[in-house]
């Protein structure tokens, strides 16, 4: 519940299994983003419990929030890349904040850039690459720490269909490697083509949860 008494989400009860690929759909303002903000503890629930892996969000103290965020990879619609850092540095930053050794960073970053197909663009700045490429940098940054969960909040929202598909395929590939993927979108074609679990949220409530879902609103 927000301070102005708007209820963003209520009575949401979900269980997502490890290695699952889940799509959350809902129109703008339905509460998708709030759900994700709750998961990375940018927002606190008024009531209710959130447990990710073995971490209970009620008992984690403030100083550990950065550590929690390092375990969950998040990709945003607006990429959220650091404009003053190159592609390579953006990805390396995720490791630097975790205190990973420099030699380890030098080994891991090129590998992950290769996975997302950006080996050639390590030394350019985010302003010099396309939206699709930016989103791949963001995914690389989220993945480089080997998170158990990757949350993609409308990653295709700012992209054309071709680039959108590239991103979705990348997410599927990541899921195949064993990472739980949580995707939110309102792209009908993508949801219907995925043939994965779909959770539909409307006005803050889960209205549908199907094993092989379709986009219905």
């Amino acid at each position: 519940m927000y301070p102005n008494k708007t209820v963003a989400l209520s009575g949401v009860s979900l269980h997502i299994a490890p290695k699952e690929f889940v799509t959350i759909v809902g129109s703008s303002g339905a509460g998708k983003s709030t759900l994700i903000r709750l998961l990375i503890k940018e927002e606190l629930p008024t009531s209710g419990k959130i447990i990710v892996g073995s971490i209970d969000y009620d008992t984690i103290d403030k100083a550990n929030i950065p550590h929690l965020r390092r375990r969950i990879g998040v990709v945003f619609q607006d990429f959220k890349l650091l404009p003053n850092l190159t592609v390579y540095e953006n990805v390396a930053f995720a490791l630097e904040v975790s205190g990973v050794k420099t030699s380890e960073i030098k080994r891991a970053v090129p590998k992950i850039l290769q996975l997302v197909g950006l080996s050639e663009k390590g030394n350019v700045y985010p302003s010099e690459i396309s939206g699709g490429e930016k989103q791949r940098v963001a995914i690389a940054r989220a993945l480089v720490r080997n998170p158990k969960i990757l949350i993609a909040d409308e990653p295709t929202g700012n992209l054309d269909p071709k680039n959108s598909w590239d991103i979705i395929e990348l997410l599927l590939k990541i899921n195949k490697f064993g990472t739980t993927v949580l995707l939110t979108t309102h792209n009908k074609e993508i949801v219907n083509a995925l043939k994965k679990r779909v959770i539909t949220i409307n006005r803050g409530r889960v209205v549908k949860d199907e094993k092989v879902g379709r986009y219905v609103l």
Binding site: I40, E42, A63, P66, H67, L68, R69, R70, V74, F76, K80, L81, L82, P83, N84, F93, A94, E96, V97, S98, R141
Partner: peptide
Amino acid sequence: EEIEIMKLVGATKWF
């Protein structure tokens, strides 16, 4: 915004 991003990536306050 940069500060916001750093927080989301999991940087500690001191970092």
